[in-house]
Simulated assay, not measured.
Amino acid sequence: MTIVPEYRATGRVERPVDGKINLVGLTREEIAEALVAIGEPARATRMRANQLWHWIYFRGVRDFALMSTISKTLQARLAEHFVVARPEITSAQLSSDGTRKWLVRFPDRQEVECVHIPEEDRGALCVSSQVGCTLTCTFCHTGTQKLVRNLTPAEIVSQMMVARDAIGEWPSPTGERMISNIVMMGMGEPLLNYENVAKALKIVMDGEGIALSKRRITLSTSGVVPMIERCGAELGVNLAISLHAVNDELRDVLVPINRRYPIKELLQACRDYPAANNARRITFEYVMLRDVNDSPADARALVRLLDGLPAKVNLIPFNPWPGAPYDTSTHAATKRFADIVLDAGYSSPVRVPRGRDIMAACGQLKSASEKERVSKRLALAEG
């Protein structure tokens, strides 16, 4: 069959689950193609694909026998050839502030983390796009883990489905939701896995399934300039930029991709972003590092950089991790920085750290399997 997705980082083909094709992550057209391949009449496949879509993405059903609008004969045939698979949850942690973190494992034993950050009547799900990361941002724990591979569309979508399973948010709500937003801010750089991320987000945005509006989705990038315009034109989701410095000299250190795409090019891509306007401003993420990038002069330079952009600034207290080379800015320095940006007319909220006690805060994600491997290597070296 030609519908099996690929691991684009390595060229490996994703293995079917127990010899069966996973329907999660396939488009309606690919589901229809799969049905034809098992002998379903072509004239019926569009209707059948829509039925499956409804059960998989609107109702969250995994067992074909529970899909009551599909005949029992077809249910049995579907069960012979397909699965509606979720990754294995190898760890589920609950923070004292209500943040939840899941470590999920895929059939090849690779793992990623995803995080749900609840508010009173809504919540955001932080989704990973790669196993590890290739960008080596020096303040980010994930950046200390080497890139293993890209996630497939199924593996990206399934993080949303795992979270909905755990929270009990099936079928898709029409009103308030506990998972009301998705932020592509987990492990990895989404724009370096664009094809798979785009396919997954189109599934999430489909109005007859999970049905999250593009206005409820934010994609965060460290600055893969050539892909920013395409993301805006094809997906129209909200854009967040991991900026963290106001000059190339410092940003080259903090965010090494800046050496390829410096600040001037990055900001021009932001000015050209098709989905940005005053109602949907670009978020500039700025981690506050003590005595590194948190001076009043830095704040004033940031204001000058953003001049004329529909922008807001998200100030992020640095979240420590073992061996981190930075300290968190003081409250006074952060407030002074925020006031300067706010006085210039840009919203500058200070993000409240969430999930620090379970290493689920911004910049702290790193798969437990990688942590365990590092611990074993250190123990052997010391022994």
Rank of each mutant, 00 (worst) to 15 (best):
A297N: 03
T90I: 10
D97Y: 12
P320W: 06
N238M: 04
R28K: 15
N293S: 05
A37C: 12
S91P: 04
P173T: 12
G132A: 00
L66I: 08
Q130A: 00
V374K: 07
R100V: 01
W321Q: 03
L94G: 08
E372G: 03
P349N: 08
N278C: 08
A240Y: 02
L315M: 06
I56V: 05
A324Y: 02
P171I: 02
P190F: 15
Q145F: 00
A32P: 15
S95P: 10
E169R: 00
N258V: 06
L342D: 04
S329F: 14
L309M: 13
R215M: 06
V127C: 01
T69M: 10
E29N: 14
A198L: 09
G60I: 00
M1A: 12
R280F: 07
V112K: 04
V84P: 03
Y346I: 13
S220D: 07
G60H: 00
E80C: 00
L267H: 06
V303K: 06
A360V: 02
M187S: 09
R230F: 09
V84D: 08
E14D: 13
T27C: 02
L35C: 14
T27M: 02
A279Y: 02
M359C: 05
L125V: 07
Q51G: 09
I241H: 13
R105H: 11
P118Y: 03
L239K: 01
K264Y: 04
E195H: 15
P5L: 08
P317H: 11
E155C: 12
A297C: 03
R177E: 04
G39W: 07
G98Y: 13
N150R: 01
P173F: 10
G98V: 14
G232H: 06
E14H: 11
L192C: 09
D343T: 04
L66V: 07
V374W: 05
V115T: 08
D165A: 00
V352M: 11
K214Y: 02
A85E: 02
A37K: 12
E370N: 04
V313S: 07
L315W: 07
L94M: 05
E6G: 15
F337H: 08
R28D: 12
E285V: 05
G39C: 05
Q110K: 09
S68C: 13
V115C: 03
V253M: 12
L380C: 09
A344V: 12
C140M: 05
I56K: 01
W53I: 11
Y194W: 14
V225S: 11
R281W: 02
D97A: 14
L125P: 03
V4D: 11
I316F: 05
F106L: 13
N22K: 08
W55S: 06
L342T: 09
A85Q: 09
V292K: 06
R48G: 08
K264A: 06
G188V: 00
Q110H: 10
E120F: 10
L266W: 07
K335R: 14
G188R: 00
T218Q: 08
Y261K: 15
L267F: 01
R304V: 05
S96L: 10
A338D: 14
I282W: 04
P296R: 14
N150S: 11
V374R: 13
V13N: 05
Q364A: 11
V4I: 09
A360T: 01
P322N: 07
G383P: 10
D248E: 06
V313K: 04
E229N: 07
T138I: 01
E29F: 11
D248M: 11
R177H: 13
G143R: 02
R149Q: 03
